[in-house]
């Protein structure tokens, strides 16, 4: 039993250290000046960590928005599909209008 608890404690410690290391890398990455990412592998990893953290915050925000408005997911997809369909129909309308303009021109030529 003791071994098992010790194993879990080691596991928790490992995660805690990794988390602290990660947070420190993000902080150092955020403090970088533009172009500093090419100053070596450590600088690159820290810059990357800051970028990943930014993306994580965006993901968190998006998930939070989705969870507060549960019905939003499907209707927004439908709205997007509807918009796409609307655009394709409008494209077709444009082509028909252009054909109509050409036919008007030809008809006028024939009448002359």
């Amino acid at each position: 039993m003791n071994n098992f608890v010790e194993l879990l404690a080691a596991w928790a410690l490992f995660h805690e250290s990794a988390d602290e290391g990660w947070k420190a890398a993000v902080a150092r990455g955020r403090a970088q000046t533009p172009g500093a990412m090419k100053d070596g592998p450590d600088a690159f990893v820290e810059g990357l960590a800051a970028l990943v953290d930014e993306e994580k915050e965006r993901l968190k925000q998006r998930l939070a928005e989705e969870s507060t408005t549960p019905e939003k997911g499907t209707p927004s997809e439908s709205a997007e599909r509807l918009e796409q369909l609307g655009f394709e129909i409008a494209e077709l309308r444009g082509q028909v209008e252009s054909l109509q303009a050409s036919i008007d021109g030809i008809a006028d030529q024939l009448q002359r």
Binding site: R93, G94, Q95, E97, S98, Q100, A101, S102, G105
Partner: peptide
């Protein structure tokens, strides 16, 4: 944006 009503080839 394109005004297709007055556009041809």
């Amino acid at each position: 944006r394109i005004i297709w009503r007055h556009s041809t080839s």
